[in-house]
């Protein structure tokens, strides 16, 4: 069976490539198209400065016109759309160039890069990604631990069952961007700063899916399973360790996939007000200085991180379930 698995896996991956590729190419095409109207104002201003005739010639009139109308009236002067220095929407290749320059190029050739200085450049995306990843992991661990503890309490205590869930739900209805600065200020005032406040925000987002999934998982054993335990006169602790906990494992992993992505979002949001490194700080800096390519590069980095993290949880899930005998 194990000899067959990689072959089957490779086949499945190969079959998936054409549709995924088509989707990606379609999105990139749309992106290139969207760049034209998004950047048309700036392109026409620059063309006018360069002495080219644009329609309408008045900058004020252009400002009040729709972007598509400007595109239609100036079809010949749009060549610069994909190569502006400070585009409103950078073209994909500009984002990729920025991504390359702030990762590989910065580390290999930069004065502060890992090759010349021996440590990751604090101007590079890799460094900022690591900062975010640290907060993500700590937040994920706190959130998962808290979520599991709450779920155990909810399942075993009627009082907690009635009282905790409504608060957990309310906690998730408050916009995290509103709450994050407050958490940071409050923690700072009691002397906690650096990684931990970000991790707390991260945990705030990630505990919720774990609570919901674990409560469902711990309650997964049916009445028959519970009756069987009763016929053995099994104490509550035994029922928990031997029945409830193993039953909850598939539910836990489904929750962990959501929780790790939420942790990443929490860490990034926690970095916005602090500006001490991290992808969130990078995004905000990009928006301060009109470096949209930098924002998009940081976004792509965050998306790639999220994909890798969710994939990693998926691998651990598959391994665990196979080892438990619950998957083939």
């Amino acid at each position: 069976m194990s000899a067959e698995r990689p072959r089957r896996g490779a086949g499945a991956v190969l079959r998936r490539i054409p549709p995924v590729l088509a989707m990606v190419l379609g999105l990139i095409g749309l992106w290139y198209l969207a760049v034209i109207p998004m950047n048309v104002q700036e392109v026409l201003t620059r063309a006018e400065r360069a002495g080219v005739e644009v329609s309408p010639p008045s900058a004020v009139e252009r400002r009040d016109m729709g972007n598509w109308a400007l595109v239609v009236r100036n079809p010949g002067t749009l060549g610069e759309s994909w190569s502006l220095d400070r585009p409103r929407l950078p073209a994909p290749h500009q984002v990729l160039t920025e991504l390359y320059e702030s990762t590989v190029d910065e580390e290999l050739n930069g004065r502060r890069g890992i090759v010349r200085s021996g440590s990751l450049s604090n101007r590079g995306l890799v460094y900022h990604a690591m900062v975010t990843l640290n907060a993500t992991f700590v937040g994920f661990l706190i959130g998962t631990g808290l979520g599991i503890l709450l779920a155990v309490g909810i399942v075993h205590s009627r009082v907690m069952d009635m009282s905790v869930m409504p608060w957990a739900i309310v906690s998730q209805t408050i916009p995290i961007v509103a709450l994050a600065p407050m958490i940071i200020v409050v923690l700072y005032s009691i002397g906690i700063q650096g990684l931990l406040p970000k991790a707390v925000i991260s945990a705030y987002l990630s505990f919720f899916p774990v609570v919901v999934g674990m409560v469902k998982g711990l309650r997964a054993p049916g009445p028959m399973q519970m009756d069987l335990m009763r016929t053995y006169s099994a104490p509550k602790g035994t029922v928990f360790w031997k029945l409830r906990l193993p039953s909850s494992v598939p539910y836990l992993f489904a929750s962990l996939k959501i929780a790790i992505a939420a942790s990443l979002v929490g860490a990034i949001v926690g970095e916005l007000p602090v500006q001490q490194g991290g992808l969130g700080a990078r995004m905000l800096a990009g928006s301060y200085y009109g470096q949209t390519a930098q924002i998009w590069a940081a976004l792509l980095m965050a998306a790639a991180l999220a994909a890798v993290l969710v994939w990693a949880i998926g691998r651990i899930e598959a391994r665990t379930l196979r080892r438990m005998g619950m998957a083939q």
């Binding site: 028959m224 069987l228 193993p246 494992v249 438990m324 005998g325 619950m326």
Partner: peptide, 9 residues
Amino acid sequence: FQAAGLYPW
């Protein structure tokens, strides 16, 4: 019981 109810793990 009517169902075997074996633990899959």
